[in-house]
Write a protein that binds this DNA or RNA. Structure first.
Lengths: 250, 250
DNA sequence: TCCAAAATCAATCATAATCATTCATAAGCA
DNA sequence: TGCTTATGAATGATTATGATTGATTTTGGA
């Protein structure tokens, strides 16, 4: 393999994945570690990439902080904590379903180093997964303008073709008597079907959802575990009678 | 082997592979290393190639395909003209397929007042359609990082469920002999299937695609119409023998 | 928190591959 | 023949490569 070919290969891989590991390059290119190190330092001196411990990344692009609209910034800190905790359940190479939603969106940076294969029905999720260099599948279907979620027959049919090691869903309300609720029947159907194709399902909810009954659809998701933060002790007891509960520590 | 034959051979090999090793040439051409070195230095002085350690590459441009960001601004004015003209074929309430690509992306503002239902396999398209308030369906499937296109079994299966009044596709090359070409076989498969589910299909291409054979997959799309700009009159004649051609006026 | 193990790094060296140059031979042509 | 051109082999110089070393950084657990 010519030196230029290697350089080109590295840059193209970077374009695609935004980040590249030295060891991966060694495996793929049949060149020695030393040679690839030299390649990286050279490309760095040309400003084509930026070296980091273990590999390289695209230069300069660390500045962009994703601008969020009102809804997604609300309870952002809590959501990030929950997302990080939830992400710890993901194993290396898992096939993961991420529900459309702002909390699941926050999980992306925390799972990206586990080389997951992610299926989602959320448009913003797909964009973010793509930028994070994660192998991404999208269910497709009809796009709901307000939420950016794909629903309907198309989405349900697509879900039938997948099986997940682990599945993360958001909800709008949790109640000890009524269970999980979400306002849109179509989104509820997608959540339910995704859960039915997963070995293990987790529900993510910050404290604002607790003991709230969202106007509408009730979801029967008995064997899913619940991940919450800041729940009063007594409420917690009630929930624990019904399902597995994981609490995020502050 | 004659000197000229060798030169031609080297250049043709370069066109195909974008890069060539000296040792490979020695094996193939039965000429000595010295001779082939002389060939390379000579061709370099004529500007036909660029020597690198171990062989040669095509001059100037990098071999890496320009990424979405780079591509999207190139020929933007032409693309907008083509997009506006193409959009004029859309009728009120049509079901429309928009291929992933920068030219089809430009069509969105021009069709939005016609209340279409749009199906696409492009991630950036879905985002833009959503923002434009257009009823949007996405095929889903595996996401190709570089182009933002959904491909593979998931995308093809989803397409089976739709039927389009009108279908717009982009290509990478048009040639009177070779027809339409595009570098990625998976994207080609999606285009083909979309066309087969449409009453009418249009191919969009700016002049930079004309008489170019993209390295790879040839698509058989005989009954599609071609929309182009700035094509020489004689080339136009050749195309018109094969297919319907619409030319964008300046 | 701290420490130890593991991974990664930069620097160095010897080897291997490639290079430009030179020279001698062979072929084509008047 | 005499002249030019193309070729292949040989030389030492240059460049790229892979292995090794010890230093540095990260990671995981006490």
């Amino acid at each position: 393999m010519l030196t230029n070919e290697r350089h080109d290969y590295i840059l193209r891989m970077l374009e695609e994945k935004k980040t590249v590991k030295l060891q991966d390059l060694v495996e793929v290119t049949d060149a020695s570690e030393s040679t690839l190190r030299r390649d990286l330092t050279e490309l760095e001196s040309m400003g084509k990439l930026e070296r980091v411990f273990g590999g390289a990344v695209l230069p300069g692009r660390n500045l962009q902080e994703p601008s969020m609209d009102d809804k997604s910034t609300r309870n952002l800190k809590e959501k990030k904590s929950i997302a990080e905790y939830a992400a710890s359940f993901v194993q290396e190479g898992d096939s993961v379903f991420l529900d459309a939603g702002t909390t699941t969106l926050q999980m992306i940076p925390f799972i990206k180093d586990k080389n997951p294969v992610v299926v989602t029905n959320g448009l913003p999720l797909a964009v973010a997964l793509n930028e994070a260099g994660i192998t991404t599948y999208l269910t497709g279907g009809m796009l709901k303008p307000r939420t950016g979620a794909f629903v309907g027959a198309g989405a349900l049919a697509a879900l039938g073709a997948y099986h997940f090691d682990i599945c993360f869903l958001g909800v709008n309300g949790i109640h000890a008597d009524y269970g999980y609720t979400t306002p849109d029947p179509e989104e509820a159907a997608v959540k339910k079907k995704a859960a039915s194709h997963a070995r293990k399902t987790y529900i993510l909810a910050d404290h604002s959802k607790v003991n709230k009954v969202s106007f509408a659809t009730i979801m029967d998701l008995q064997d899913a575990a619940l991940i919450v933060d800041g729940v009063p002790a007594e409420t917690l007891q009630e929930y624990k009678k019904i399902t597995t509960v994981k609490v995020v520590e502050k």
